[in-house]
Design a protein around this nucleic acid. Sequence first.
DNA 1: TATTGTTATACTCTATAACTATA
DNA 2: TATAGTTATAGAGTATAACAATA
Lengths: 151, 151
Amino acid sequence: MSYANYMPDLSDGDNAVAVNALRSAIMRLSRRLKHQRVDESLSPTEMSVLGTLARCGSATPGELARKEHVQPPSMTRIVALLEAKGLVRLEPHPDDRRQKVVSQTETAEAMLEQSRRKRNAWLAGLAEDLDEDEWAKLRAAAPVLEKLAHL
Amino acid sequence: MSYANYMPDLSDGDNAVAVNALRSAIMRLSRRLKHQRVDESLSPTEMSVLGTLARCGSATPGELARKEHVQPPSMTRIVALLEAKGLVRLEPHPDDRRQKVVSQTETAEAMLEQSRRKRNAWLAGLAEDLDEDEWAKLRAAAPVLEKLAHL
DNA sequence: TATTGTTATACTCTATAACTATA
DNA sequence: TATAGTTATAGAGTATAACAATA
């Protein structure tokens, strides 16, 4: 099969339908996920930063800003709030005194675990309305969506 | 196969991984989708309301607030902004004088069409990094995500 | 008395512009 | 001169509380 067969041709009805459905679902679900916080004082982006740190180990504020698609001043504020809550640690960069190294604390790890439980519980509630086939499709698409989000 | 086999057991690693990936991707993609507005003066929720009206025909402010998961005062503001831009029409409710009926204008239909084109263009840009199999998984999961968002 | 929608107000999150320190 | 991060400020979007009109 040639590249043209799966490239998202703008006139391809299937892909257009999928794109519209994805966008609509993403915007709606993101709004509802905001209400599923383990800690009400933790914003979605703060949670996302903790998740990034859990995956990457540590990062500079600039790297975090690029990964989360926010501007540097916004990340400055987010990191400061997380530090005040004891969820991240800030250390001087070993090679460059302009930069800082942000890493998660043990408290953050515990909170992420708690968050995972709450998200699973929320999902379990919705699951009663999904059948096995639908669940399989979600599991298959999850890594693709994650890849899209990182592109 | 029994119900227990596809129910999202909290100890099920596959589902937990999928949930984490989905949540992370949804939050990141929603942030980037905000920057893909066809009209800079139209917020994501305003776009979403227009989409809802396109699907449902018309609705009261209260119904829209529930569907978009925002509080009634927020929807009052959103509807007022959309009306000022000539994108929705407000008419008195036929049976209940407390309520109003919101419906989209022809201008809104044209804007939604333009928006679809822009989203497809954005997706076409990302498509170069997705292979055929990944696209198939996205198409399969799109209706499921839409269903989730409506549950 | 309950419900629909609005007004007034405050809060959260993010961005832009200007600044400091270091490379 | 360029880059990393910060400070100060403004704007967008939403929520809560109090209110008006109608059921």
